[in-house]
């Protein structure tokens, strides 16, 4: 692999944004996975498709409308789930299909699929602009600060909601906060892997890290490391071999998952 590619400024932006998104998805994804909400990222991403189509039709920067639509629909579905006692997976299914349905109808009205829509479906990290990089870094910074400040409350309400409530933690507010942060994270990450593969970044590095049998902080650090490795290596390999970055990144993280399962089944992962 030639080192020349590391001198391109688009590659700098792609790698910097990619690393930020990798960290963000690992951290938010860990809480979602542990809450048995693994597919929630997928559902928000699909609903953002409706937002993207809306933005493209209205001539607005599509990610802005995607942020709006995703966050609002994620909060609404959480409220509905709470109020009508619908199970998490059913709520996710409703959110997922309504986003795609709205998107398809809007795309139909505005004249069919275009190259823009494909770049949102499958990601376009090599095309990320300076402004988008700044936006990605700022959101990553803000969300990570919030997570660090509320780390123990987030962890406790994820571990056992009832006990957290009894210890005086405002669990409902924390739940909405997680959903809100997940919405921001998903739309921010669309540029890296696209709408269709987002849940891979949320879920795979985390389930891999959990298999190592460590405590919470070590698990989070492992997950972030796996994620950064997949994203950086994926972007570089995909450029050199001219293949899609999104698919490469996800396949690399699946490789790490498979490798970890292999190590574990050989009994090489000791229990502490």
């Amino acid at each position: 692999m030639s080192l020349e590619i590391l001198t391109f400024s688009f590659m700098h932006r792609a790698l910097i944004s990619g690393v930020a998104i990798a960290i963000l998805c690992s951290v938010i994804g860990l809480f979602l996975v542990l809450r048995r909400y693994s597919l929630f990222g997928d559902a928000i991403a699909h609903s953002s498709f409706g937002g993207i189509a809306l933005g493209l039709m209205a001539g607005v920067y599509p990610l802005w409308t995607a942020y709006g639509v995703s966050i609002v629909s994620a909060l609404i579905i959480t409220k509905i789930k709470e109020k009508y006692d619908i199970s998490g997976d059913a709520a996710i299914a409703v959110l997922l299909s309504s986003g795609i349905a709205v998107g398809l109808v809007i795309v139909g009205i505005s004249g069919g699929f275009t190259i823009d829509i494909f770049s949102f479906l499958f990601g376009s990290i090599l095309l990320v602009s300076v402004n988008e990089t700044i936006l990605i870094l700022s959101l990553t910074g803000i969300i990570l600060i919030v997570v660090l400040l509320l780390y123990r409350q987030l962890l406790y309400s994820t571990f056992n909601e009832e006990q957290a409530k009894v210890s005086g933690i405002p669990v409902e507010k924390i739940n909405y906060l997680i959903v809100f942060m997940a919405g921001l994270t998903v739309v921010t990450s669309i540029q890296l892997v696209g709408v269709l593969l987002i849940s891979a970044l949320f879920v795979i590095p985390n389930v891999t890290a959990i298999m190592y049998g460590k405590g919470f902080k070590t698990t989070a650090i492992l997950s972030i490391s796996f994620s950064i490795f997949s994203v950086v290596t994926g972007i570089l390999i995909s450029y050199v071999f001219d293949i899609t970055p999104a698919g490469t990144i996800v396949l690399l993280s699946i490789g790490l998952f498979g490798g970890t399962m292999g190590i574990k089944s050989m009994g090489l992962l000791s229990k502490n």
Partner: peptide
């Protein structure tokens, strides 16, 4: 009640919240 594989040590659990 908690997930059996929840990545939290005794130390983590005692300090949660």
């Amino acid at each position: 009640i908690f997930e059996k594989n929840f990545p939290a040590t005794v130390n983590d659990v005692v300090r949660m919240g």
